[in-house]
Design a protein around this nucleic acid. Structure first.
Lengths: 239, 239
DNA sequence: AAGATTCATTGAGATGGCTCAATTTGCCGC
DNA sequence: GCGGCAAATTGAGCCATCTCAATGAATCTT
């Protein structure tokens, strides 16, 4: 992780003023006149691929913003079955807390950098700078809508529809390199399966089937190219 | 619905001061000194069983609090498949809005009474009385945690586990008449099936199986009695 | 009270996705 | 470039749940 950051590091490494995800994060609601207060309460931590950030039920003192990398959220059943409830990307808020402990587990997919904030400091920030609470409410509104959409996927879509919806969601929200019709999938097949309520075998078979139909190209398991995006959209909707 | 309310109606029918769900609703954050402002912006509407309140995508001018009755939230696929994403009970907030329209459809299960508020008035309330936004954020935090739990259920539990989890959730959250180990299920088998990602036949068969095992009693399709609540809890957890 | 309608239950057979098992591929260190 | 390991793919058979169909129960209408 020594040189994984996107820009040169002569300037103070973690500077809220120059943070390139600030506009996407809750911090966007902190006016520049309050940047000092924000800067004073954040610290940063690095995680290596696969590392657990926290487990569901851990007592929660900190909340986080994703600075870099991708994070999986998950819940476990006593026998080990796992449901991945979401993937977080830079700018996303991490740390849903109920009854003083985390409501889900979180783990680094690749190398991850988090911007950490003590819960007590967040609470002070919320009372000092009201727009931050407004911002958090807006963000959780979006999360709630995404959760509803995911319930529709989990409860009512076929394996094929699940995969297609997942790919399109990634394309829409994460890889907006203009008209580039391709996406990265940094997570494993196991993560995808646990996110979509499938097994790795079904995920793999479905990818193969979509490739054989010409709907996608798979130069490697972590990169998908869409030769015809509209055809994928049609296939995702159709009954 | 002429006499469906719980208390006598000599006093003004819809009075925030005497509203019996105020403490559960977002309104709990409105201090008594501000009750007038709240009262001024709410109105009430009745819905009959089965009636649609709004559909997903409808332009959203109003948000609601459930005053009485139970509401189902749902999303539809183009071919008619339906996912019920939640059931709302008195005190719950109704009206998740993204891009100026409702993120889900909503329908009355039995007779329902809603407390209605124009979105613009809610926004004024939020800026006039900051604790209301805090309250809404807390409520959406709980909703988000419930959504995560539901994803675990939809993605990773068996039909039997789904039904048992559903029954226990109802018992925990909705029918706290002390140690009374019984619950009402006002919704249809179709609603339950669409909530749990099953078919009505599987729901019905599973109820029958649980009854035959002695885990539940079913005096009628809308009432469940638990002879041994701990046995149900064990069955819901076990692998 | 009989008929009609809707909802729930039960039965029988079909199937999509799962389980178990074997390869194959890609990656890492030396 | 070569073993060794983890991840992904592929194959074959199975089973939990679905589909299709019939029956039963409850409610509403007249």
């Amino acid at each position: 992780m020594s040189d994984s950051s996107k820009s040169a590091q002569k300037a103070p490494r973690h500077n809220c003023d120059t943070c390139d995800v600030r506009h996407k994060a809750m911090c966007a609601a902190v006016g520049h006149e309050h940047t000092d207060q924000l800067q004073a309460i954040v610290s940063h931590r690095d995680y290596s691929p696969g590392q657990v950030i926290f487990e569901e039920g851990d007592p929660a003192d900190y909340v986080f913003n994703i600075s870099d990398g991708e994070v999986r959220l998950y819940k476990l059943l006593p026998d080990g079955r796992r449901q991945v409830t979401g993937f977080l990307t830079p700018g996303d808020f991490l740390g849903l807390i109920t009854e003083s402990s985390y409501a889900y587990g979180a783990g680094a997919i690749g190398a991850v950098e988090l911007c950490c904030m003590k819960l007590t400091n967040l609470e002070r920030l919320l009372s000092d700078i009201p727009p931050v609470r407004e911002r958090l409410l807006d963000m959780s509104r979006d999360e709630l809508a995404a959760a509803q959409e995911q319930m529709l996927l989990l409860g009512r879509k076929t394996a094929r529809e699940k995969i297609l919806s997942f790919l399109l969601y990634r394309h829409k929200h994460l890889d907006r390199t203009d008209s580039d019709a391709s996406i990265d999938l940094p997570m494993s097949r196991t993560d995808i399966a646990d996110y979509l309520g499938l097994t790795i075998e079904t995920v793999s078979r479905t990818f193969t089937a979509l490739r054989d139909e010409g709907l996608i190209e798979l130069p490697n398991p972590h990169h998908v190219i869409f030769p015809d995006l509209d055809a994928v959209r049609d296939a995702a909707d159709a009954a």
